[in-house]
Amino acid sequence: MADLVLRVLRGLALALVLVFFLFPIVWILLMSFQTNETILRLPPSLAFDPTLANYKALLTGTMETSSGTLQVTFLRNLGNSVLLASLSVGLSLLLGVPAAYAFARFRFRLGEDIAFTLLSFRFAPPLLVLLPLSLYFNELGLADTYAGLIWVYQLICLPLVLWIVRSHFEEAGVEVENAYRLDGHSWWAGFRKVAIPLAMPGIAAAGLLAFIFAWNNFVFALILASADKQPVTVGALAFVTASGIQYGQIAAAIVLSILPTLALALYAQRWLVEGLSLGAVKG
């Protein structure tokens, strides 16, 4: 009996915590099915007639406001976000994983200094580097190009990948790789077949985090790209219109832009968990 009470109480406590943390997202989900009028009424109410108008406006690209019809480029923005975030993460994994391996396994001149310099990119406020950066970008012809944005996004992704993956390489230790090499395999095979799989949970976690940070970035894209290359974070500014803020559409846009990251997280979970059960390298 006491057990049952305890179980119920625990369930209630968990539900409370969940409601507390998920409330904003649930509220946004509800908002996305409402019109601006029902969203803004006081007191707020859970009773409303659900409408898909917000999603329709986003997907068809036309927004009806009291002062006329506006064009919405949300889908294009979403595409840009996917493109920018995945290519930047891909590039930073391509560069960062071998670099992390090098930092974890080899001592070389200035090694620690280079690693720290890369980390220090995360210290500088982006606004501080943006002005010189935009001048350089104009000069180099990188302003308003995907390549330029992906390059700048390395400031966000590369340090994350490098430092998280490095610690996983260090934790896995070099001996398993050495054993593999003694068993007649090359150094390169040891890197691919042993080091990478053992560090996979770290690589998945770093990739996921880097993706989220890249996805959520606002200020680089705002300054360095024009409308047709901007991600959803910047594109959402379009919902602040002359005739007011389109809360319903903002909510729908948020819901839609959460989906890719959520899907990626669920997908990466496989490696995160598999990595955990595989992680006990040391006895």
Binding site: G173, L278, A280
Partner: peptide
């Protein structure tokens, strides 16, 4: 070689 840290393949 037998390694001090065992170095067994985890999977």
């Amino acid at each position: 070689m037998a390694f001090e840290g065992y170095a067994l393949y985890p999977p």
